[in-house]
Design a protein around this nucleic acid. Structure first.
Length: 691
RNA sequence: GCGCGAUUAGCUCAGUGGUAGAGCGCUUCAUUGACAUUGAAGAGGUCAGAAGUUCAAUCCUUCUAUCGCGCACCA
């Protein structure tokens, strides 16, 4: 009997030791897999790619939950005899990382323009080397059994080749084109954004009603939230079915301030119910208006530039002003002219940059696009055919809705940190998501089609991620995989729960409502933290975070520790065969012995079923209930008065089995106990056989 | 505007077509015998509201309310 069992379980000490022990064993890498004749899954692989966290990131609760889910799966499959591979890595996260480094430079009084492109990129690489892997180290603390020897980065040399290859492939197919389009532009980041990179934030503002005077006399009133863009108006539009304005169509009005004569047009895009039913049309600075402009051949006046300032076309009094300053100016001027009919309070969503939270402006700009028609079709088919399944299934709708209404993908970004667009003379870099879309095969060596890893481990099986990147990332991986590999990159997509604060609010670092998983690990241990996360992760429902479940995890760890202590004490004093399989045919078992063995068998089946269905919370509840209430409260109590060889044999076997079943969920404590067992099948619980 | 989800014990949540369960909290008892990070016993719920289907509804259907989240042509 080992003396360490005389003390309460010490997670901190144990976890550090055990993790090193695992890493040294080499069993995180699939190469360490040892073929066995009695392995029912011999020859099968099981692969998961870790959604690459941003190099700017640090572990938050969502990462912790997601990593735990993936670790449960990979450990379970590894024990089941699969050659299991979990590939970790990080994403260069173009805009986010550039912003972080620029901020740091600003403290030193420097800007990236002062440094120049080359020097600046050196700084970013330095930053990446220094801070970029913090989050991966945090995952180790959580117990993640990734193959760290295969750690990838979206700007690795080989990965860059993959990105260039993908671009060239699309280019040769004629799916890449350059065009001057109205795009979402973040003046603060100085780059275009795709529509998925916007966040609409509800803001209280005004709806201004402006009089435009008709050339023939009288006037028409338009309502707008953006009076400043009237300086770039090319028309006024009404709905063709709107009787109120029937006779106005094809008349012209005099645009105030600019004194430009513009037509009144009719278009279905206009909603009769909005405002007065007549709207101003600014083809350069609104997506709808751009559509109308194209249809009706309207001139485009670009009145806002890339820095968010008014151009010369905005007119003398506004040129050089920032957009909001210009708004004030225009309102003031309209009041002066008596053309402001009224203003109403109005709340609407304002498009903000998801990286810097600045207001995004639609502006016309020369950008690179990928045609999405064919790619979207293949991604739709992958899910509709059932080749890819979402768990919970409801997320398929989110995915399909986006793909069925898709627009071409703007892939160029006017920043410096990223993959350069391979065309001569182009300084733009590619959307970060263009490179992460290749993650499931670029991490396995693509574009080298003969790469051993690629042949052996593609396609992967499960992808587990957060709901907010279903379209941004998952959909794009699906069509990329289909396009470049001819096979979907995975078969099952787990969309894990979103962790909210106790009152159901979003956890936010800036509001101080976030919970730091590293703090929980420090306080309760990694096993307890994993327990607390999974305990609450039922059916993919949002989690209102409750720390008490982590405390319950800590108590549970202690319970298991003491169960082990009891069993090892009892079995240590008798000289009997330690059973490592359930061959009990020679034994005369009591009713209680039989009952607990039967229950164990049920629990095992139920846990297997739950894991296969990605119902990890359910599996953990089942295990908890069995270990605490059936094993500890009943059977151990029974065994105290029934110290037969049979009962001791059953006791040992149950402990042994329970350690295996629990290992994917709470890997550290189970491994630590396993290391102290007198008789076992393997050197490490993490590679003992499940059966 | 459209869609999705939630509503069950004080709190965080499971669950089932046949008069409800867990963790934490609460009450009472047990004190050095694996574990007080414990054990035993217990209190506590008209399962959001209404209507319907059914022998039977917390569970199925419809509607309503409240909260949350997506999406949209948010001018």
């Amino acid at each position: 009997m080992n003396e360490k069992f005389n003390q309460p379980y010490n997670p901190k000490e144990t976890e550090e030791k055990i993790y090193k022990f695992w890493e040294q064993s080499g069993f995180f890498a699939p190469e360490a897999h040892q073929p066995r004749a009695d392995n029912p899954n011999e020859g099968k692989t099981f692969t998961i790619v870790l959604p690459p966290p941003n190099v700017t990131g640090s572990l938050h609760m969502g990462h912790a939950l997601n990593a735990t889910i993936q670790d449960i799966l990979i450990r379970y499959k590894r024990m089941q005899g699969y050659k299991a591979l979990w590939i970790p890595g990080t994403d260069h996260a173009g805009i986010a990382t550039q912003n972080v480094v620029e901020k740091q430079l600003k403290k030193e009084g420097l800007s990236r323009h002062q440094l120049g492109r080359e020097k600046f990129l050196e700084k970013v690489w330095e930053w990446k080397e220094k801070y970029g892997n913090i989050i991966l180290d945090q995952l180790k603390k959580l117990g993640a059994s990734c193959d760290w020897s295969r750690t990838a980065f979206t700007m690795d040399e080989n990965y860059s080749k993959a990105v260039q290859e993908a671009f060239n492939h699309y280019y040769k197919k004629g799916w890449i084109y350059q065009g001057e389009r109205v795009v979402n532009w973040c003046p603060r980041c100085g780059t275009s954004l795709s529509d998925l990179e916007l966040e609409y934030v509800e803001e209280k503002t005004k709806l201004w009603y402006i009089k435009y005077s008709l050339k023939r006399g009288g006037n028409i009133i338009v309502a707008t939230t953006r009076p400043e863009t009237m300086l770039g108006d090319s028309a006024v539009a009404v709905n063709p079915k709107d009787e109120r304005y029937e006779e106005f169509v094809e008349q012209s009005v005099l645009l105030p301030i600019q004194n430009r004569e513009i037509p009144i047009i009719a278009d279905d895009l206009v909603e009769k119910e909005f405002g007065t039913g007549a709207v101003k049309v600014t083809p350069a600075h609104d997506f709808n208006d751009a559509q109308m402009g194209e249809k009706h051949n309207l001139p485009i006046y670009k009145i806002i530039d890339e820095k968010g300032r008014m151009t010369q076309l905005a007119g003398e009094i506004c040129e050089g002003l920032k957009v909001l300053e210009c708004r004030e100016k225009v309102i003031e001027k309209l009041k002066e002219l008596g053309l402001l009919e009224k203003e109403e309070d109005y709340t609407h969503g304002v498009a903000k940059c998801y990286r810097c939270n600045g207001i995004v402006e639609p502006i016309p700009s020369l950008q690179w696009f990928v045609k999405m028609d064919e790619l979207a079709k293949s991604a739709i088919k992958a899910v509709e055919s059932g080749r890819i399944r979402f768990h919970p299934q409801k997320w398929e709708k989110v995915y399909l809705d986006w793909l069925k209404n898709i627009k071409d993908w703007c892939i160029s970004r006017q920043i410096w940190w990223g993959h350069k667009i391979p065309i001569e003379g182009v300084n733009d870099v590619m959307d970060t998501w263009f490179s992460s879309a290749l993650w499931p095969f670029a991490t396995l060596g693509w574009p080298d089609k003969n790469n051993k890893d690629l042949k052996e481990f593609y396609p992967t099986q499960v992808l587990s991620t957060a709901r907010d990147i279903i379209n941004l990332w998952v959909a794009r991986m699906v069509f990329s995989g289909t396009e470049f590999m001819g096979k979907e990159p995975f078969s099952d997509v787990i969309i894990h729960a979103t962790i909210l604060t106790k009152d159901g609010k979003r956890m936010s670092k800036s509001l101080g409502t976030g919970i730091d998983p590293m703090g929980l690990i420090e306080k309760y241990g990694a096993d307890a933290t994993r327990f607390g996360l999974i305990w609450q992760a039922m059916g993919g429902q949002d989690i209102h975070w409750a720390e008490e479940h982590v405390m319950a995890g800590k108590k549970f760890a202690n319970k298991i520790w003491n169960i082990a202590r009891f069993v090892l004490e009892r079995t240590g004093i008798s000289n009997f065969q330690f059973p490592i399989s359930n061959e009990f045919s020679n034994l005369k078992l009591s009713k209680e012995d039989k009952e607990i063995l039967e229950k164990l068998e049920q629990v095992k089946k139920s846990v297997e079923k739950d894991i296969e269905n990605y119902e990890f919370g359910q599996a953990l509840h089942t295990l908890y209930d069995f270990i605490w209430h059936d094993l500890a409260d009943k059977y151990i109590e029974y065994s105290k008065n029934n110290n037969s060889a049979e009962t001791l044999t059953v006791l040992y076997f149950i402990l042994y089995t329970v350690l295996k079943l629990l290992h994917p969920f709470m890997p550290f404590i189970t491994e630590e106990i396993y290391q102290n067992l007198p008789s076992k099948n393997a050197d490490f619980l993490m590679v003992d056989k499940w059966e």
